[in-house]
């Protein structure tokens, strides 16, 4: 899994691509611990074509920290397979989910 981040206005855009499953989840976990993501964050999942419960768990962890710090978190570009995981677990209720990154950054 490839991870990159950039700034867009006062948002940080964290872009993930590839497989986010139990095998690649630790890689994202350590990346998040090493990097400072305070402030408003948008996670772009456009290039994520497979998400499992471990990947979901990490995203929910981010949501919890953002909520605790009263900071904004948005997800963007979820394809149907990724959306399905959020829906069947009801995790969608924890996230603001956008079609596109720039609409999220408005």
């Amino acid at each position: 899994m490839k991870i990159s981040s950039k700034k867009l206005g006062d948002y940080t855009i964290l872009s993930l691509s590839g497989i986010l499953n139990a095998s690649s989840a630790p890689q994202l976990k350590s990346y998040l611990e090493e990097t400072d993501f305070s402030g408003s964050l948008i996670i772009d999942l456009e290039l994520v074509d497979f998400l499992d419960s471990s990947g979901l768990g990490i995203l929910v962890g981010i949501a919890r920290r953002k909520k605790a710090a009263n900071e904004i978190l948005k997800l963007a570009n979820l394809n149907d397979r990724v959306k399905k995981v959020f829906e069947i677990t009801q995790a969608y209720t924890l996230f603001d989910i956008y079609d596109e990154v720039n609409a999220a950054a408005e």
Binding site: D52, S53, L56, G57, G61, R64, V85, I88, T89, T93
Partner: peptide, 19 residues
Amino acid sequence: PDVTLYPEGGYGLFIIHKL
């Protein structure tokens, strides 16, 4: 899983039951 508690685990088997 009770999502209101922002759980980071416990989804696996639940997902299987749903799918």
